[in-house]
């Protein structure tokens, strides 16, 4: 089953969200509207809105209420990407020029701040204190995760716990929050929205680990950036941590820095792929997915549950 087929029954609502996203990013300032539209047109999986809508289906599904949360979360994600591109000095995202490349860093900062504020405005239509506590804590954790990422760059002595905490903050928490907040907007009982948070968390962890694996096993064409780019940038991911258990390989890897040549990188990438690092990382990713499936099995049986299960399966098998 294709990824989008898993939730095709949401198509009308997702189209509505797409239209509302366009309205939401528009501003009285033409440049901001243009930048917002530029970001939307670059596409994206809209995975957060999908999780919000599906999770809301465990309660009373009212698209008018739920769409606000879905839009807010997607815009928070967009805002973070705009700032991430300044952080990484990135020229392209999904094959299109980034805001900072099309305009400059200052415009990117203002656009990101504008979008973040816009998302909170939308989010406050949900008069639920618990929801705001969850989202605000998530946002703080995501920021801390990004700061940690800078701190941990090229630190070849970091351990698995540091890596897992980092990807939890960087990726898993916002997906977990999407599930939980969708459920809260649907008015589900606490026992259910807590489970949906855990489901999102496990799937998010698996998603990021898969991303980190693909950085070595995919192609430059599919990734839209050089293979091994994360390592070259100093991000020590799970495959790297496993590969470094081999002393000889660790010696080579720990010499990587921002100016390591392509030839040197290619040799290291080949060595990592030849080791058991990739298969061991896949196992960890699968373990998280399994936990996600277990949580799902505790939830009421409905088409949203089937769709979440299909999405989780896709995440485990995706190739890019």
């Amino acid at each position: 089953m294709k990824f989008k087929m898993a939730y095709s029954f949401l198509n009308a609502d997702l189209d509505l969200i797409e239209q509302e996203l366009e309205k939401t990013v528009s501003s009285t300032e033409p440049l901001l509207s243009e930048a917002g539209l530029h970001l939307l047109q670059a596409g994206g999986k809209r995975i957060r809105p999908v999780f919000v809508l599906l999770s809301a289906m465990f309660g009373e599904y009212d698209i008018e209420k739920v769409k606000k949360v879905a839009i807010a979360l997607e815009i928070i994600h967009m805002a973070s990407l705009v700032h991430d591109d300044v952080i990484d000095d990135a020229e392209l995202r999904r094959g299109k020029p980034t805001i900072k490349a099309k305009w400059d860093n200052r415009i990117a900062m203002y656009t990101g701040d504008y979008l973040f504020a816009r998302s909170l405005e939308i989010m406050t239509s949900l008069e639920n204190v618990a929801a705001h506590q969850i989202l605000s804590k998530t946002i703080v954790e995501v920021s801390l995760g990004e700061i940690e990422q800078i701190k941990d760059k090229y630190d070849y002595e970091q351990n698995l716990r540091v890596y897992l905490r980092r990807i939890k903050r960087k990726t898993a928490l916002l997906i977990a929050a999407s599930c939980q907040l969708g459920a809260i907007a649907g008015g589900v009982p606490e026992s259910v929205h807590r489970k949906l948070f855990l489901f999102g968390y496990y799937v998010g962890m698996s998603f990021q680990i898969t991303d980190d694996i693909l950085d070595f096993t995919s192609t430059e064409e599919e990734l839209g950036k050089p293979v091994g780019g994360d390592l070259l940038q100093g991000n020590i991911t799970l495959p790297v941590l496993y590969a470094m258990e081999d002393d000889e390989l660790k010696q080579k890897i720990s010499k990587v820095h921002s100016r390591t040549t392509k030839e040197e990188m290619d040799e290291i990438i080949r060595a990592i792929i030849a080791s058991d690092a990739i298969s061991r990382s896949v196992k960890v990713s699968d373990m998280y997915l399994e936990k996600g499936f277990n949580i799902l099995s505790e939830l009421p049986r409905n088409r949203a549950r089937s769709a979440l299960s299909s999405i989780a399966k896709y995440i485990g098998k995706r190739k890019f």
Binding site: D113, S143, E146
Partner: peptide, 11 residues
Amino acid sequence: LAGDYFSGLYY
């Protein structure tokens, strides 16, 4: 990141 972090704190 500092600016983003401070924004998160106010929220």
